[in-house]
Design a protein around this nucleic acid. Structure first.
Lengths: 197, 197
DNA sequence: AAGAGACTAGACAGACCTGTCTGGTATCGT
DNA sequence: ACGATACCAGACAGGTCTGTCTAGTCTCTT
């Protein structure tokens, strides 16, 4: 059996283990709070391996956020596949959000949280967060267009507000109800946007 | 002239200068990033004075947030006084938010930001943030009731989502448009909530 | 068998953090 | 005038942070 076989239970590389450890710790406790030593200890990796793989803590943080972005993208698109019409797919974004905010370990948007901690204006955190937000807005715009909305970008702007608000509510109020509520408002706005064609 | 005279240009106490410096630095750069030395340097105060006034950094952070909460409360209530009917007062919350998010130094909600950085679950940040959110929700509920809404608490839940979403948008997208948009959605929801009495 | 590449363990440097302590100064009420 | 109070300046201790470096091990490939 080749070592590249996907079914082979090969040991994850140091880079993969570092990324997994960084994901857990950075998200749960914050980018600034968690030190390098904590990450390498959980990953079971030597410090030199971290610095040869990523070069600096900031680059590890960038990789952590890029990985989060990719996972979020996949989860969202996969979650939307179960719906068979454009309208449900658009609202389905909030269904997926409700699932995520209901998860025990939910601590809000990783990008916003990292951004709140970061100092640098055009640093790694800023770059990845901006890209992530642009992707979300683009997704909403696309889904709105598919649903036959006259001004998809305008509806997308509204939906982004609801999405962000529900995310904040899920973190601060420790209840997933905000996402369900946001979905119902989104439904309201979608109806208004399609009726006033 | 008595020293307690409000018009006297007395020098602010060490405590007041510390609080002012903490407010600027903590909000602009984050609670964790800014060290004690930076605060006392900007305040022009000795380190011993900080520790005799506040006891610890965490208590300084608590005082910073409590001060923020008090200022926000006053600014909001003062801003709402210019409206002469319940409906405009309710929507006026978003007008005030639009002004705030449009201010050059705006960096999002101080309480959420501090919360994203803090580790402790029931610590000072958590306590003050929770109180601040409860106050906001209570304000919305009260204003909704004054506006003749059938279920004020339900509308308040919706408005909180919009408020949070607009705040996030103002921070991350560097444009104040989100608050204006949130206001228009709020208007929509208010109409729906009063019509379906 | 042998060498290359990836990895581990951990000491170390230099900076920065919170919090304590000493000693000196200025301003107030009496 | 004098004592109390509030305050300033800065050294210091003990800890933690990022990042570098040395030295040794393990596992592939050829």
């Amino acid at each position: 059996m080749s070592p590249a076989s996907p079914t082979a239970a090969r040991k994850p590389s140091a880079r993969e283990r570092l990324l997994a450890a960084a994901d857990e710790l950075f998200y749960a406790e914050g980018v600034h709070t968690v030190g390098i030593d904590r990450v390498i200890e959980r990953a079971g990796v030597a410090k030199a391996s971290l610095y040869s793989s990523f070069g600096s803590k900031e680059e590890l943080v960038r990789a952590y956020l890029e990985n989060r972005h990719e996972l979020r993208r996949k989860r969202l698109l996969a979650g939307l596949e179960r719906f068979d019409n454009p309208r449900d797919r658009l609202l389905g974004v909030f269904d997926v959000l409700a699932e995520v905010t209901g998860t025990p370990g939910f601590r809000g948007c990783a990008f916003y949280n990292a951004s709140a901690e970061s100092v640098a204006e055009g640093g790694a955190v800023d770059q990845v967060s901006t890209a992530n937000r642009a992707w979300t807005r683009g997704l909403f715009t696309e889904l709105a267009r598919d649903a036959g909305v006259a001004d998809p970008a305008a509806l997308a702007d509204q939906l982004v507000i609801l999405y962000d608000g529900a995310s904040v509510g899920g973190r601060m109020d420790k209840q997933a109800g905000a996402a369900v509520l946001a979905r119902s408002i989104a439904e309201h706005l979608l109806d208004a946007a399609t009726a006033t064609a």
